[in-house]
Design a protein around this nucleic acid. Structure first.
Lengths: 399, 399
DNA sequence: TCTGTAGATCGAATCGTTGCGACCCCAAAA
DNA sequence: TTTTGGGGTCGCAACGATTCGATCTACAGA
């Protein structure tokens, strides 16, 4: 009969009564349980008081010891002025005796935010990223947010993505081409805004919760071009980054724009695409030399490759900048120290980090500024492109 | 009457009956509810299907849509073979339709571990740490753990310490002198073991849950000393790190041990303590020059300072290694590129990272190896200490 | 027909917090 | 004396997952 849906109505009618009974019953049971564990607490407490450590004390332990309710303890932390002096002191003492530390995980679950933002990098390598992270941290600290960085080295869908996938952070700053845009689109939400630093916002990569900050790569290329022209160079080659790299494309574009403005035919300029690594730069430069081009200067899409190129040139006894000038991009620390020191375009990494974090902040508190922010870059001329040096060498050579 | 504990027994007696009723009832109710929310789901789904996003779906939503219980959904994830084919498929589909993603925070709370380990660094700067983190990540990934790095830049008790204080990680690797040993002692627990890379385990800094990994700094100093002696240098100076730095002290110690073994009086050797920075190295070298010592070689406690020293020497037209040889320590990337290239002691950062993580693993799964592990270092001779070069320069100079 | 067993599923408790609403009590206002 | 009010507390219901033991079903063997 009970199984029969036909007379369900009568059952439903008695539910409130039953519920009441059960409820009351549970209350009694609970009370008993408390009494029980109270005794047990004695043991646990001793354990905690001794140096042995044992498992962590919880807010309930504190409440018990201070003889107040759990809510009061919580209140004592969050709004101390709302609890009486004496209570606050008792809580305080209990906290110390038990070495209580709040459980961040539980809090995060309850308040549904982590107060943590993640910086996802391709690898944490290098002087290059450290400035950026510093910029992020500086802003985040001011906002009371914790910054954690995760590298995405190697494998697919590794650890760092877990931060996004399982909502372990409140927001993220991404600088890692190996994280697919599709994934980012899937992860980005109102509750998890993302700022990308390594890719443009295209038509099919757009969301209210994704914004971008970037250096003005195109301007950088343009500055580089103008600088090389200023120094009197006329016959160029380009060592570009991977074809997929939008950054590299823009640098390339700006460079060509400068050349065209000076009526130089860019069509005949040799371009080699490599992979942004030192080794890649060496290989690219090697190819260029083998092919026997007559060159005044080479524009390399990043410093790493440029340094590789310098090494190859040195091996082939090609004088820089006398025979061929070399221009890099990024202004990594090394650029200043190689011989000859490398002319390059400075990316304001620290400011990029700051800007990214500020954008994230906007998205987090709803006053989103959205879209794309572009920061200017600056030219850093050094020895590797100095015409003056080239002619000095000339003289030395001629004498 | 119900509230009166006196006739509780009678209540208790009827409980099984009531339970049965309630249970059956709930079953019916559930069926209804399912039917009900099923309709609602349509709406919610639309919300989710549209681009608007909305709040995250929970495991309950999935259960509802797949028409199974929450536990079954959970089971379908953790032990797929325990649920029937058809159920698994329904769950799978619901997951996709709702774009369900498990809430890591909730899981962490329930299972009382985060599967995350933290790497706490002084700042994330540099080629120096990146190798280390790579080593850590490589091991951690294999263990299914996520690695997160946090810099401890600036302020007291900043963000990164929150990871430890609020038990947001299962373990930590610390390489940041600014984190006080006392704090580490307080945080280290069975449930949160710590491996330190930047300090020795002394008598008053010891715990079952703290272990250490370090490079053999003393050996490094010894190798450096022997190398300089081999090259024929006899009159030395030392630019050491901060007095607090145990690492610097050991390097210094090893260096002197080598000299003493060669019957060189170490008491008359000038020692300047600086701060491990490039600028500090410049100031220290400047002082040394001002004081007018006659020197063959300077042993500098890290590369950063050594590079500063090189710059000062160049400014003063002191030829390296001809007039004075310079030896660094660490083997940072820059060392290879400065002019002249810097002889140094290579610290196996990658291996240090690996070793630290392996030690942490041991502590995490109870098979703790504990204590201190010391990894060997290697000599990397380059131009800045080459006697051969010195004499070549001699010839060039003489001609 | 009954029992035993294994596979599939479910309910309910639990993890440690937070915060809302309710409560109690005492003093000031009516 | 009765309201009002507010400061100080407390109880309870979440938050979203996991997991243990119980229940249900179906089917094989006795």
């Amino acid at each position: 009969m009970w199984r029969n849906g036909a007379n369900m109505s009568c059952i439903i009618n008695i539910i409130p009564l039953l519920m009441g009974i059960i409820r009351e019953n549970q209350r009694i049971a609970r009370t008993q349980k408390y009494a029980l564990t109270f005794d047990k607490m004695g043991v646990i407490m001793n354990r905690n008081d001794s140096t042995c450590g044992g498992s962590m004390a919880t807010i309930r332990d504190v409440a018990r010891l201070a003889n107040v309710s759990v809510s009061t303890v919580s209140l004592a932390f969050s709004q101390p002025h709302r609890v009486s002096e004496s209570t606050r002191l008792r809580v305080q003492e209990a906290v110390e005796r038990l070495e209580y530390r709040p459980n961040g995980t539980a809090r995060d679950l309850r308040v549904r935010k982590t107060n943590t933002i993640g910086v996802l990098l391709h690898n944490l390598s290098g002087p290059f990223y450290s400035e950026l992270i510093r910029g992020v941290e500086e802003v985040a600290d001011r906002l009371g947010l914790t910054t954690i960085a995760a590298g995405c080295s190697g494998y697919e869908g590794q650890g760092s993505v877990r931060l996004l996938h399982e909502a372990r952070v409140d927001g993220a700053i991404v600088l890692d081409p190996s994280i697919k845009s599709g994934d980012l689109l899937r992860y980005a939400q109102e509750s998890l805004p993302i700022v990308v630093l390594d890719r443009p916002l295209s038509r099919d990569f757009q969301s209210d919760y994704i914004s971008a900050v970037a250096a003005d790569h195109e301007l950088g290329g343009f500055l580089a071009g103008n600088h090389l022209l200023d120094q009197g160079f006329r016959r160029f080659a380009v060592i570009a980054g991977p074809v997929e790299s939008e950054d590299s494309r823009l640098r390339h574009l700006g460079f060509f724009r400068a050349l065209r403005a000076a009526d130089i035919d860019t069509v005949t300029i040799p371009v080699i695409h490599s992979d942004f690594t030192e080794l890649g730069g060496m290989r690219a430069m090697g190819t260029l030399l083998e092919q026997g081009w007559t060159l005044d200067a080479v524009f390399v899409a990043n410093d790493e490759m440029a340094i590789g190129a310098l090494q190859v040139l040195e091996e082939h006894h090609v004088m820089v900048p006398h025979d061929i000038a070399v221009m890099g991009f990024d202004d990594i620390r090394l650029a200043r120290y190689v011989t000859p020191s490398l002319s390059t375009i400075h990316q304001p990494m620290y400011e990029l980090g700051q800007a990214a974090m500020k954008k994230l902040e906007g998205a987090l508190n709803g006053t989103s500024t959205g879209g794309l922010e572009i920061l200017p870059v600056t030219l850093v001329p050094r020895s590797s492109t100095l015409a003056l040096l080239a002619s000095e060498e000339d003289r030395a050579h001629g004498s």
